[in-house]
Amino acid sequence: MDTSLFLLSLLIAVAGPIVAVSYLRPILLKVLRSFCDADGGAEFWVRSAYLLAVCGTVFMTLVFGQFDPDASVVDAMRRALLTVISGVFLTVAFISTRVWGQVRLIMEGQKVSAPDRAHPPGTGADASWPADPGARS
């Protein structure tokens, strides 16, 4: 095992996800604060995202990295970058699907609780039914 390739790959595996989540952090905090009323709830989830991203990427680098003594530096860095990009992609995809799931639930809840402005009572879909002939007015 080439120690310098190993350490350089680990450095990339730690730095890559930190840069990616740092880029998302400001907007992620805004979105999460709209969901989390608890004090510190949004910060907890952002820190969890950092841990998830870094641990997942380091894991992928340890499993799929190329640290052989006869490996070229270019091949080792290519493999390290591929694992880091894959780890960051999977982490961001996971976070995005979870956040979008909450956004969708909120949007559906707003549709249900909002009055139907397009069809006031007595118009629209309910007005198209014929009056009940047996009903007494």
Rank of each mutant, 00 (worst) to 15 (best):
V19F: 15
D2Y: 00
R33C: 00
R136M: 14
I106D: 10
I106Y: 10
L82P: 01
V19K: 04
V46M: 03
D2R: 06
V99G: 00
L11F: 15
S34F: 03
S9F: 04
R104F: 12
F59S: 12
L5R: 14
S96N: 15
V88W: 06
M1L: 08
H119P: 02
T123H: 08
L51F: 12
S128C: 12
V74N: 12
Y23S: 06
W100S: 15
I27T: 15
Y23T: 07
M107D: 15
A135E: 14
V19C: 10
P115V: 11
S86D: 05
R104S: 14
G101Q: 10
W129S: 13
R78F: 14
V73D: 15
S86W: 06
V19L: 15
A20K: 01
G124E: 04
V112W: 14
G56C: 07
L62R: 06
A114I: 07
S48K: 09
G40N: 02
Q110G: 04
L52W: 06
P133D: 06
S72N: 04
R136W: 09
S96Y: 08
L81F: 12
A125L: 14
R25H: 10
T97I: 15
P133V: 10
R79D: 00
V92G: 03
I12L: 14
L28I: 01
G40W: 00
A135C: 12
S128N: 11
S137C: 10
S113W: 09
Q110H: 10
G41V: 05
L10W: 07
G134W: 10
F64Q: 02
A15I: 15
F94T: 10
F64N: 07
A49M: 08
V103H: 07
S72P: 09
G134Y: 13
M60I: 08
Q66A: 10
D39V: 09
G101H: 09
V112C: 06
V14S: 07
G124L: 06
D75M: 12
W45P: 00
P69M: 01
P120K: 06
L10H: 05
L10I: 09
T91N: 05
K111D: 10
A135P: 10
D2M: 03
E43G: 01
M107Y: 11
V58A: 04
L51N: 11
D126E: 13
E43L: 04
R78E: 11
D68P: 00
G109V: 06
R79N: 02
W45K: 07
P26E: 00
R79F: 00
E43M: 02
A38I: 11
F89M: 12
I106M: 15
Q102A: 13
Y50K: 01
E108H: 08
G134M: 12
D2C: 04
T3H: 13
I106W: 12
A127T: 08
M107Q: 14
L51I: 08
G134E: 11
V112S: 11
V73N: 14
R25Y: 04
R117N: 09
A131Y: 08
Y50P: 02
